[in-house]
Design a protein around this nucleic acid. Structure first.
Lengths: 219, 219
DNA sequence: ACCTGAACACCGTTCAAGT
DNA sequence: ACCTGAACACCGTTCAAGT
């Protein structure tokens, strides 16, 4: 088997997509490549370098998923959802790189798309940079959290799920009045709507600072 | 040495505060307790149960840090900052539990405080539950991301820091027009301000749905 | 030049043996 | 009843040996 950083990263994406509890281990990667697990370290300095390469690939995949021809706001919204989707679909790597700068073409493309979109919406340069950082951190933090959950072994997830449904009900109303009063409403909340709510709040903040005279949403 | 879940959790919080790269290992915990590392598993079912116990303790610490007598909005803001602070100060555990339900008194107290605060601001029950979930997920996701960064070994952090400062500058302006145009503004962004920006956006979203006739911010 | 495979120091967890 | 310490199957990484 002929190895290269490219070939290894491809294989690592496939392994990471299997979402096994122990994640992207050297052994699993070696098996996917049909190679001894130590051979990887001839092409990557260490595990961290490999993770960054795979993480950057995930960002490239997310950017590639955004359809052409969308208006700025819908484009950024689509990018945000794609990042979360791709990170959750490769949860071990997603959780590991959500707090990192991957320093590759995937990151460049994602940042470029965000900056260009915010520019089109009519923000001035300083605000473009400020809201880009806010959007990137928000989306990556959320994607990292969801990926961190997705990577858990099934029995742990089951425990968490059950806990969310059942642990609040038997609490004392004297000690936790608001909590016990809201139990039925809390149970009805859908975690998947949180990202949309976050993005809505983000646009409210953008609108509160946008200068309408500079707006040219077609670019 | 006499062990108990309480004693072990105390020691684990101290170990987690040391923020060493390899985090909360059995060996470090055993040393802190003056006990063989395997003795812990007589009191906790497995590593996951231990992590949840320590994570819930972190939430209790965060709630305890919130000053008395604050108005609802300032109280929730203070709670949010405390959670991030405590998670970053115990980064290994913070990163591991940000996506979890810790199912203990710390979680109950934090959720109670959020629900009560949102109620005081004048939301009706369904909206209280909806925004509590949004606030909790936002704060935990952000805290988890910051903790995930804080837990990295120093040389990795150095690499990331340097990357953020230097990798965008040499990129091609034809390929990345928005990115290269905003380099000086991007460099000036302060990551610590992102949480404040997120909270501001959150309050804008709350205000957009709050029913002013039900408002009684003193409760 | 590149992959192999043994080796090293770690990890969480189990379990028979001691007290 | 509770802690000890050997043991097990893992991990990332190194490095001499092969091709």
């Amino acid at each position: 088997m002929r190895l290269s950083p490219e070939v290894i990263t491809d294989a690592a994406v496939r392994v990471a997509a299997r979402a096994e509890a122990d994640g992207l281990t050297g052994r699993a990667l070696g098996e996917e490549l049909g190679v001894d697990r130590s051979a990887v370290w001839r092409h990557f300095a260490d595990r961290d370098a490999l993770l960054l390469a795979v993480g950057d690939r995930l960002l490239r995949m997310a950017v590639a998923q955004v359809p052409e021809g969308l208006a700025a706001r819908e484009r950024l919204q689509s990018l945000a959802r794609s990042v979360v989707e791709v990170y959750v679909a490769h949860p071990f790597v997603g959780a590991a790189v959500a707090c990192r700068a991957t320093r590759g073409p995937g990151e460049f493309a994602a940042v470029e798309m965000m900056l260009a979109g915010l520019q089109e919406i009519g923000l001035r340069a300083e605000a473009v940079a400020r809201f880009q950082r806010m959007l990137a951190d928000t989306v990556l933090a959320y994607a990292g959290m969801r990926a961190g959950y997705a990577v858990l072994p099934q029995h742990v997830k089951d425990g968490d799920e059950q806990a969310r449904a059942a642990t609040y009900a038997p609490l004392s109303p004297e000690r936790y009045p608001a909590l016990t009063a809201h139990v039925p409403y809390l149970a009805k909340q859908d975690g998947d709507r949180v990202l949309d709510a976050l993005l809505e709040a983000f646009w409210l903040a953008v609108e509160a600072t946008a200068d309408p005279t500079r707006r040219n949403s077609g670019r």
